[in-house]
Design a binder for these strands. Structure first.
Lengths: 350, 350
DNA sequence: TTGTAAGCGTTATCAG
DNA sequence: CTGATAACGCTTACAA
């Protein structure tokens, strides 16, 4: 499995490297016969151009940088899955960076990606990031950037997100139609676009059904591990208490379920729960947990496609815009697995 | 945010690029004053060596290749998380490849990683892979390789795995001590090392407790989506039926739970279930699902550490061996969240 | 139609 | 102690 270079082909055929190079990329001004010979020889030697040399030359590295807050997260790993699939099909490699929800580290990641000469950058902002100057630098260098999921209105680039407004609206309306009136909303950092859109969807649903918006029912969390408990405590101390929870993430949904239980605040009959979540095992969870499913993989795919379009063809590519991928509301009810699973659970005394 | 090269520093200081290069890497034979000047200037210009040029030069790309069957998988995304963390600390980048459980694609991945001149390769074999010649090529080229999780006994390199034998033994023994006698084992492709080790642990536990091994109770699956149903059907048609399931993966565990339910085969009181799983939400699932938790992140970390040790220092690095990271048996019982969650489920009528 | 030579950023070898 | 020069693999003016 030796590795051959353009030089080897040149020597073999008594040609110059430039001729070989041109033949390989099918240049006009080249003898068809020579071309054939070169192709044949390249095939025979199993020639593969050295991507490193290509990137040094400055043309293209055929690699895209992907920066996410966390890989070990169902949403992002799904998204990366989608990205990698598209990238592979179109002949690109994926270099992964984790910002660990740190602004500092995100900037470092961006610089590293640039020094690796990535052809484009796909990024989902860390929760700490509010200043996007580091991305402006990238854009100014003419490296295409596409944001996904955690986006920023301050950047005039293509952005791919779930339809957070629509999802939140559907979830909230679902709870209202089930008779809930005081719907608590557990969400994340208020300055994130996704937070704002979800909150807007929530408010719109309330408004449509003539319910008043109560600021006390909204709780903003971070990404800490044990923060949900106190939030739930506060909410359950309100008068009247909430009769439903709409949580903005898997983590919050699971945390909320646990907190309610651990505090012996077993959810009263009139407290419902709905999660804005990506859990693939959601349908094995509590039957009270209907979910708004995020099309994580599709978001990754669309983002990667748009980015590669930009890389390969700045003219024909679609213009800058914000793509909203629809979400799906999964309602758990008696036709569903979970309801039936209850006796299964009840019968067990392991 | 311009990007400066060694040339810029040389010009600025009226030195040659070679001197700058040497000063930067703290060569012996260099005037301390010159060195200081160079350092100062590099600092001022925020100089960063171009990794592409470095790799072309052949020394080191400071990138490691990671090939996994699937990113969107709890285990692998956790493992990658661990890998990336270590790599970042030690100044390496991670280039990710998915084999999609395909042997073909795995070979392509290996070649791509090599042409990217990765300093080392971390790989978890696809389920289709039985021939490992492609990895031999890599090793012959003196590129360090470390296998993790899906390993191969045919390769004389460092391998990092969960203690599958120990975990399977503990799980099986746990079921036996709970009074089970006919424990079905749902597992994956028989030629995978992890399958063999888990099966061995299962057999060892049976043997220790004087139970007979019954081949009929073992079912081998692939990674298809809807294969568990038929497997469960067959098992429940046995006489006598199994009184417990020991499943070898998240997917199988979840599939088994669903299948038992969907087929109205609601698990009889005397059928128990235990999963060999990585689900972080396992403790929200059926209380009957005790799990053997795989230390995914730790496996990734250890594998990355070993690989980078090999890359940086072939002499002092630990010798080739197989590292077994302990697993943990999580038993769900009444002190646990899930048991208490039952009334929560029962009370809900969404 | 093909060859020559320069250059991408860096390091290594060899002189000075 | 420092400076030329070549080389890594490839592309691309510019010549021939």
């Amino acid at each position: 499995m030796e590795t051959f270079t353009i030089k080897d082909i040149a020597r073999e055929l008594n040609l110059s490297t430039s001729t070989v190079s041109r033949a390989l990329r099918g240049s006009y001004e080249i003898n068809p016969e020579t071309k054939r010979l070169v192709m044949e020889c390249a095939e025979r030697l199993n020639y593969r151009p050295n991507p490193i040399a290509l990137s040094l030359k400055g043309s293209s590295s055929r690699a895209i940088g992907v920066i996410v807050p966390q890989i070990a997260n169902y949403f992002f790993s799904q998204a990366i899955n989608g990205i990698e699939a598209i990238a592979y099909n179109r002949g690109y490699h994926v270099i992964i960076f984790q910002s660990q929800e740190s602004y500092e580290r995100e900037m470092a990641n961006v610089n590293q990606a640039m020094s690796r000469k990535v052809d484009g950058l796909l990024i989902s902002l860390s929760s700490e990031t509010s200043d996007v100057a580091h991305l402006r630098d990238v854009i100014d260098k003419n490296v295409p950037v596409v944001l996904f999921d955690r986006v920023s209105a301050e950047l005039n680039v293509t952005q791919v997100v779930a339809d957070n407004f629509g999802g939140a609206f559907a979830a909230t309306e679902h709870l209202i139609l089930s008779g809930r009136r005081r719907i608590a909303h557990l969400t994340i950092q208020p300055w994130l676009s996704i937070t704002q859109e979800r909150l807007a969807g929530y408010r719109a649903a309330l408004e449509k059904h003539g319910l008043e918006f109560d600021e006390n029912l909204i709780r903003y969390g971070t990404f800490g591990p044990d923060e949900v408990g106190p939030m739930v405590d506060e909410l359950m101390a309100l008068d009247p208490i909430p009769d439903a929870f709409f949580t903005a993430s898997d983590r919050l949904a699971v945390g909320c379920l646990k907190a309610l239980h651990q505090r012996q605040l077993a959810i009263p009959e009139d407290v419902s729960l709905i999660g804005f979540t990506n859990l693939n095992v959601a349908d094995l969870l509590s039957p009270s947990l209907s979910t708004v499913v995020q099309p994580a993989q599709e978001i990754g795919q669309v983002a990667a496609e748009r980015l590669i379009d930009l890389i390969e063809n700045k003219q024909r590519a679609k213009p800058v815009d914000t793509v909203k991928i629809p979400t799906e509301l999964v309602v758990r009810d008696s036709t569903n697995f979970v309801e039936h699973a209850e006796p299964l659970g009840a019968a067990r005394t392991l």
